[in-house]
Design a protein around this nucleic acid. Sequence first.
DNA 1: TTAGGGTTAG
Length: 733
Amino acid sequence: MLSAVSRNPTNFPVTSHLRFAASRLNWRLLYSAAPPIDTLATTLRPFPEYSPKRPTIQDAELVQNLTTTLKQRRSDPLRRVLSPFLPRLRPQHLIWAFSHLRSHPALALSLLHCYRRRARHVPLEAQAIAAHLALASGRVGAARQFLRQGLTSHRDFVEQVIYTFRHWSSDPFVFDLLFRIAVELGRLDDARSLFDRLTFFGVIISVDSCNAFLSHLAIDAVLKTFVELPLRGVRWNAASYNIVIRALCRAGKLGEAREFLLKMESEGGILPDVISYSTIIDGYCQAGDLPTAYELFDEMRTRGLKPNEFTFNSIISLLCHSDMAAKAEMVLLEMLNQGVAPDSAVYTTLISGFCKNGNISAVYRFVDDMKSRGLAPDAATYTALICGFCRCGMIVEAERLFDEMLRKGLNPDEFTYTAMVDGYCKNGRMHDAFRLHDEMLKNGLSPNVVTYTALTDGLCKHGDVEAANELLHEICGKGLELNVCTFNSLINGLCKSGNLEQALKTMSDMEAAGLSPDAFTYTTLMDAYCKSGDITRAHCLLSEMLDRKINPTIVTFNVLMNGFCIAGMLEDGKRLLEWMLEKKIMPNAATYNSLLKHYGMEKNMKVVTEIYRGMCARRVMPDESTYNILILGHCKARNMKEACYFHSELTARGFSLRADTYNALIEGLCRKKRFVEARRLFEEMQDAGFLADKKIYDLFIDLSYNEGNFELTLEFCDEAIEKHLIGTKADES
DNA sequence: TTAGGGTTAG
């Protein structure tokens, strides 16, 4: 052994079985070649000598008896065989015993196991030796465990592994494992120190482990390390380049990522692969840049690389997030045409996209489709479905899916629970939301900032801003960091409860905490000013956000539009709409609804019709509010023909009437003596759980009385009394 | 150790 060490430039005890193991397992541990830098080569030093203490005659006898007993053991239980020795064993006996058991590593580890059970503690040196022995007997899992325990239990463990290496080890792979475990534990500085320390002994960590290290670093450290490690002998591979590309994309440095893709080939001599292109395509998709994503898609094909399900999914995801779910489905067909089979991730993206769209029938179609391809919905698919159903108010269906998941043995994770918690919050079921929060804790899951934001928002919308504030203080005390969404929820709650001053203070707190307000923050505050009639301050906030380079969204403009309308500045509202169209800012139904509503309230149906036609001409789809506004306006202007036309349109599109629209429509029909239709709508309104106005009851009471139907008259009277309406009438008379 | 899907705010 020693002669082998002296012949080896790095002083490793190289044995033939080690070389065999390294090649068999494809461990690219570069230990025999000198590092590329001369200066480094001159500083190479041997591993430290290991000199175990010499045992006394009694100790030697004890160890001899112990190890002989172990070797001769056949079927007797180990604990019984060892029981006479264990009470007398000290840590040093363990290490002497290891010396006797070098060719029986399994027995050495069993001895260690029994010792640990009794002493509940293993000395650091024995722990390091155990890792070497475990690796020698091919037990990589056990070696990992020893190294992990050692690393987490003592700062000097690395030194022990180095110190014991020369005498006990036959395998430098132990350092690769140690390095990897340090990375897994997030101890990146320790990992780097280990790397540097090992280079002095001529050990170079494998490129695979260096990649693991690289993938955990922040962008600046990635770039620095990518330059430094080759100077220490690491030769990067395609995965390394892909990790750098991913890091650049995540840092938003897409141009640099693209340059790096070129460098990969020109300077690294490594051809970009499907992963390189998929990574960079996803980067552009995340940034919403579809044209460049498609350009790279074509480029990869030109280079003979076939886009796979990952590549397609990034494109599908961007389309879904840009409200182009139908186009996303066309991409699915395209991938099928090209012989690329979609996997459950692709289906989950589509399901999530169509859920956001409210297209539940398409969602069911995708679920059937994926099942027919033998793809079982996984936790992410279920979460997308649960979230989608919750958004559509289908909480019972969401609960059914949550139970189904459990029955199928799929464990709901933080994402699933949070989707369900949010669903309950949005449906005002705060008690159920907190019940699930407690259930998460009971199941060992940690509610995260998203979970708490959902709860905060629920409490605020439930009118309990105080409780929301307390909850946030509590979670901050537990070390959870709030994000912009959390603050925005609270700011919104404060605004809606009329505490604008506190809302502004919360914005300052948020900045003090290092979080910049975004378009949501400004839009929320602008809305509060608009609703309080202070359009000037709303305008000031708009200027402030533009100065801070925060882009307004369509909601920002809608808030402003609504502000103009509330303030009776309808002409300014119309001018804002024209300005938006000029600037190619596409209005949506909500933009038009504000104008339609307020012109309708003024019974100016000529302008309402003009605006509505403009909306249709620009292919902006009217929503439920649009139809309700149009019906209400036409009823008030006594245009029952138009009102009934829009009512039939609303029904055909599956929308519902609101209470005020029902009242206006029923009143209008009665005025036109269309009592049968009025009566039918009145019943429909009650079935929908709405309370009719006192005026409507008066109309039906008078109507039935004049018809001589006293029974019905009394029925209406009873109902009106029950709804506490008669008292108001008496007060009036 | 390298690529894609599911949770929060106006």
